[in-house]
Nucleic acid binder design. Structure first.
Lengths: 203, 203, 203, 203
DNA sequence: CATGAATGAGAGTTCATTCAT
DNA sequence: TATGAATGAACTCTCATTCAT
């Protein structure tokens, strides 16, 4: 995963402990992704991780705590994926296109991310909101940069940023999570979305 | 609510029964909206509805069943709201603008809708998917109509429809559910989004 | 038991419910008496009562709640036993003797009472303290009455009341709970204690 | 604490070990006093003592074992306090007065003693009973000595001894543990109790 | 001797669902 | 049709004790 930032966990004092904690986090990603928060059970997580039930509580205070840790972990991972994808781009529109392409690829490989982030709406509303607000601000900043560079309209703001985020999220849902045979490739999707973004839909 | 379509419920034979069922459905909308599916309890729903616990099973087979009935009910309500909002419009772009405006107003008044629809992702994935696919197709049809009318580009398809749906959903999340003082009005949001949609973001 | 006063229970709405609640309370008296609060288990209480585990929570909010209800129940029972025992007496010293005699007989038949009241010190300190303070005040009042009648010294107060209560409690512990063959009868104990109380121990 | 008598502990071989064991015992006195046996946890005891969890089992076989060791330790301490308090007295009544005064002072400084001794009733009934029977016999012996000296009645026995013990214990509970501002001093309490003991309550 | 991670039995509690009235 | 008591499986969490280092 992209980050070592873990919220409020009990910090292991030995290398062995560190490994066990990581095993639990990875097992939880799978369990929560497959079954959702409420259907998931601690005992199933520890079974997947290959540790005893009680060991869970050596590393996390509660089911909520490991979920929160996981949301942060995934939220960071998404942002990293986008950051990596746009690293080589300089043109503002190309940046948006690369960001979406990177996100689509990332989501294809981590389909559990939608369920986990979405479920945060119920389990940990603060993380959920923080996740989208952070991303929204990041996009808004890129739009301002694009305006600065004279490539984008100067009146773009938060509304446009959230609209763009929504586009990306739903294209991910449709083409990375619910993809069917015959669907356009991620690149094609990103290209079409980029055109829409750049020129709009008017004839 | 907008529709009487209820999936697979036990059909009441008397007028009194019909009223009890409606009371349960309304109580469930509040309960699921406030607490989410798993935190919600049947006994709390019956308490809100003012009927005995056992009576619940006279009208619904299970907790899942009433949730599914509710998702359909809400899904229909959203679509109706959009349909009503665009009834008087003829210009394709004005239609989209009116649809978003209508949706923002509807969501402001039914904030529970996001939680309920979103939770369907976990409780009843089929309804969840069906909800968005239906809306996506409806939007795609409008884009084709716009192209037919010569107002929109002729190459618009499913990708653009999902992008547009994502825009609308996220603008609703940000400006109808998470709205803050100082935020633009629904009309302003709809206008800005419409401009983005029409012309894109290029300078 | 002596009283229907039950603290903060869920009030049954039917006769059947009332009976089940009483069965649980009686079973709890035995279970807590035999095993003590912490070793006692809800499942054992319901097994003794012949009801399902879940039914417990129809009538009590928690293990603590039924324990508190029981302490009140027993506390009332002790006080009733004393009240009944002294009903026919008029002489202040005879009253004290009858009170102790009545208490010893009651404790012999309800040996669980010591364990339950004593354990309240840990589980519900407020009830524990209230139990002894109430009894202490009642004794102090009787001493004042005795002084009024000219039979007892006029300077008796709280100190003497607590001393007398301690005497009674420990004589109950030794001769009602830990009684052995060859021990004096309750009447003999009450008589000896009464002499001590009246005349003291000086030669 | 007053004694080194520890029941069935693992005997440390080194000075360092002896110190660790003492730290655990002192920490346990605080922990059991504050939280009671069942709420107390080994990990909390070791935390208070500043040693690792596993080290506990180097010095005690179980939670029960350290509790038993502690009860003996405290029981000895109570008896020592009484013994010290009466060391200089020769008059039988003055001895009883000094014993109570000493006990009240000791209990004021070791309020945890009541909880620990009382909880022994549940955790280790044998120690509990032995504690009071030993003290009872000691008091009975003193009463016989008083009779021998011609100062007390010749017919005093076990009943009077237990009555006296009960007086002392309850006066300790009321005036050493539950003391309030405005209460009589330990000396005043001891004096009043002594008068009661000597002359009784008759006018 | 000291450490702290690992273990797993066992507890209290919840609540969807059933059923007798 | 309405009621509310009864059921029991399933879950999260605790912690005394063991063990590898």
């Amino acid at each position: 995963m992209a980050s070592d930032t873990i919220e409020n966990p009990k910090v292991p004092r030995t290398e062995r402990g560190r490994k066990t904690q990581r095993k639990l986090l990875d097992a939880a990603a799978i369990e929560f992704g497959e079954r959702g928060f409420h259907e998931a059970s601690i005992s199933s997580i520890t079974r997947r991780a290959g540790v005893a039930l009680g060991s869970f509580y050596t590393y996390f205070d509660s089911k909520d705590a490991i979920f929160r840790a996981l949301v942060l972990d995934m939220s960071d991972a998404v942002k990293s994926a986008a950051r990596d994808a746009i690293a080589d781009e300089t043109d503002p529109l190309a940046i948006e296109r690369a960001a979406l392409g990177g996100f689509l690829r990332f989501a294809s490989e981590h389909k559990e991310i939608y369920r986990i982030i979405d479920e945060a709406e119920f389990v940990d509303p603060d993380s959920y909101r923080a996740h989208y607000e952070t991303i929204g601000e990041r996009i808004a900043q890129r739009l301002r940069d694009g305006a600065q560079a004279g490539v984008m309209r100067p009146d773009l703001g938060e509304v446009e940023a959230w609209a763009l985020m929504g586009m990306n999220v739903f294209l991910g849902l449709r083409y990375a999570i619910w993809n069917r045979s015959g669907d356009p490739t991620p690149e094609d999707v990103a290209k079409a979305a980029n055109t829409l973004l750049a020129k709009g839909i008017e004839a």
